[in-house]
């Protein structure tokens, strides 16, 4: 029953947000964050199984769980995906940031054990740098930055992104190419100099 209440609440908040109520987003955000975070962790901690962690699947699952399907128009779904992508980004960046400060364990090194200790913060710092670059991009070109967010963090395909942003698929492809090239340039330059 609580689920239904929550579903109802989120569906309602989505509708309000779509209608321009910004404070609805403030309420929506932590609810979706918690759900996505929980789902992501659950995906990860499933031992083995060889699955791949699909962000789309993750967000879809969150969507099914959080939104009352019967009373939602498609636009709400698009909004949900958009906000979920943003939230996935936030979740990962939060973790990356926390991780960057975490102490690293030592231990005898019979067989090198430090790979993970080095790889994980590696991903973390990559993500942090990407996040920073994406922020700079958003200042110049908010739409292109959003395309990257939806695709990379949200796991949406171009068609879905086109739907969320109300542009053609071709535009999404072009935006993606330009944004990705620019981000690549930013990241490789900051790594090299």
């Amino acid at each position: 029953m609580r689920r239904t209440t929550k579903q109802h609440e989120i569906t309602q908040l989505l509708a309000e947000w779509r209608d321009g109520n910004q404070s609805a987003l403030d309420e929506l955000y932590p609810l979706v964050y918690d759900e996505l975070h929980r789902l992501a962790r659950r995906y990860m901690s499933r031992e083995r199984g060889g699955h791949t962690l699909q962000t789309t699947a993750l967000i879809n699952e969150a969507y099914v769980r959080l939104v009352d399907q019967k009373n939602v128009v498609w636009a709400n779904r698009a909004h949900f995906f958009a906000i979920s992508a943003q939230i996935m980004r936030r979740i990962l960046i939060d973790h990356a940031r926390r991780h960057a400060y975490a102490k690293r364990g030592g231990g005898a090194q019979q067989v090198t054990l430090d790979e993970a200790a080095s790889i994980t913060p590696g991903i973390g710092s990559d993500l942090l740098r990407l996040d920073e670059a994406l922020k700079s991009l958003a200042e110049m070109d908010p739409r292109r930055s959003q395309v990257v967010e939806l695709r990379y963090f949200g796991g949406l395909n171009n068609e879905e992104i086109a739907g969320v942003l109300h542009v053609s698929e071709n535009t999404v492809t072009r935006d993606w190419n330009m944004a990705r090239a620019w981000l690549y340039q930013q990241l490789t330059e900051s790594a090299g100099n």
């Binding site: 990860m44 996935m88 994980t120 990379y152 963090f153 690549y184 340039q185």
Partner: peptide
């Protein structure tokens, strides 16, 4: 950069996969 990003499949995957380990460690 575009060509190189293409060749390297830069951010071609999904952030959650790339950062999966962060969520659990």
């Amino acid at each position: 950069s575009h060509h190189r990003a293409d060749e390297e499949d830069f951010i071609g995957g999904r952030a959650a996969e790339d950062g999966a380990a962060l969520l659990i460690v």
